[in-house]
């Protein structure tokens, strides 16, 4: 499998990475050696083999519930916001005008 620059550009869009022309070309070239290497797994007969899921000795499920934190922890979390409006996280608008 060989990917061309347009296909890599599409992946970059899916991954939300503004690569720029130079890095796009470099990554496309890197894929030329990496993909043939990893594709050797496709030659292995895996008929009747289940994909590996989880180690059997894992703990399993836990309850999903909100937890209280102390004021210090809370302030540390808030202080990591890139932009703050009081105790709220400020973010750019989610609903955008569709591009033409």
């Amino acid at each position: 499998m060989k990917l061309d620059k347009e296909q890599v550009a599409h992946l970059a869009k899916l991954a939300r990475l503004d690569l720029g022309e130079e890095k796009l070309e470099a990554v496309t070239k890197d894929f030329d050696s990496i993909l043939p290497y990893v594709e050797r797994i496709q030659a292995i007969d895996t008929s009747g083999v289940e994909p590996f899921a989880m180690p059997s000795k894992a703990r399993g499920w836990r309850q999903d519930r909100a937890m209280e934190v102390d004021d210090y922890t809370r302030e540390l979390i808030l202080s990591n916001f890139p932009e703050r409006s009081g105790d709220l996280l400020a973010a750019p608008g989610v609903f955008e005008t569709p591009k033409k």
């Binding site: 496709q42 895996t46 994909p51 590996f52």
Partner: peptide, 11 residues
């Protein structure tokens, strides 16, 4: 790719 790799992981 992914699913095949998970199967080879089992092997």
């Amino acid at each position: 790719y992914y699913v095949q790799a998970k199967k080879v992981q089992t092997l």
